[in-house]
Amino acid sequence: MHPTTQLAHDLNDAFAALNFEVYEGPEISSELFEFDHMNFPADHPARESMDTYWLTGTADERAARRLCLRPHLTGASIRYMSEHEPPFRFVYPGRVYRNESTDARHERAFFQYEVLLVDEVVPLTTGKFLVDTILDTVFGTPVVTRMRTGFFPFVEPGFEVDMRCRVCGGEVPHLRTGRLA
């Protein structure tokens, strides 16, 4: 099995053991779910064809009628929340597509994994504990992680999670920016 596929299965199993649902949204989506509902301004660069794969024949359309290959997974959260009642505890893994030049750090189709936990009270410490628990479970040993703030137009506050490389331990000289302590 491909390592990315295996990791996705392992993550799904770890989250399912904590009563998270695994959700998969469609790979063909719309401007409505991918941008409008996510609070991307109408003139945001991500809406341009140089970043998003728009389906032929929908370029003159707007909102739900303008179709694209999903450029990120977050639009699936709106779909999920419109079909279910809170509180929400789900993960959504999947392939996404971006019109990018391929190089060592960029690919036109790649895999993302997102988690959404919405309840009346969820402290940030719970998020950090959840991340550490999941990664410890998947990798079988403690993993050094950090949560750092990140701006996303669709959530406040927003965070990104980094983990120390399991191969080099964070010691690759050309990858030392933002190195985990």
Results as ranks from 00 to 15, higher is better:
4 T>M: 10
4 T>K: 05
6 Q>F: 00
8 A>H: 00
8 A>R: 15
10 D>A: 15
13 D>K: 10
14 A>S: 08
20 F>L: 05
21 E>M: 14
21 E>R: 13
22 V>M: 07
22 V>H: 07
24 E>M: 12
26 P>W: 00
31 E>M: 11
35 F>P: 07
36 D>S: 09
37 H>Y: 02
38 M>D: 02
41 P>E: 09
42 A>D: 13
43 D>K: 04
43 D>Q: 08
43 D>W: 01
44 H>A: 09
45 P>M: 09
47 R>S: 07
52 T>Y: 13
53 Y>V: 06
57 G>M: 10
57 G>P: 10
61 E>G: 03
66 R>Y: 03
70 R>I: 15
73 L>H: 08
75 G>N: 05
75 G>Q: 03
79 R>K: 05
84 H>L: 02
85 E>D: 14
86 P>N: 08
87 P>A: 06
88 F>L: 04
91 V>M: 09
92 Y>I: 12
92 Y>N: 12
92 Y>F: 14
93 P>R: 13
94 G>S: 06
94 G>F: 03
97 Y>S: 11
98 R>P: 11
98 R>L: 11
99 N>P: 09
102 T>P: 00
104 A>Q: 15
104 A>C: 03
108 R>D: 00
109 A>V: 15
114 E>R: 01
117 L>F: 06
120 E>L: 03
122 V>L: 12
124 L>F: 06
124 L>M: 15
127 G>S: 06
128 K>H: 09
129 F>I: 08
129 F>P: 00
130 L>S: 07
131 V>Q: 09
132 D>F: 01
133 T>I: 07
134 I>R: 12
137 T>N: 13
140 G>W: 00
141 T>M: 12
142 P>G: 05
143 V>Q: 09
143 V>M: 08
147 M>H: 05
149 T>I: 09
152 F>V: 11
158 G>D: 04
158 G>E: 01
161 V>R: 00
162 D>Q: 09
165 C>W: 04
168 C>N: 04
168 C>M: 06
172 V>G: 01
172 V>C: 04
175 L>D: 02
178 G>K: 04
181 A>G: 10
181 A>C: 01
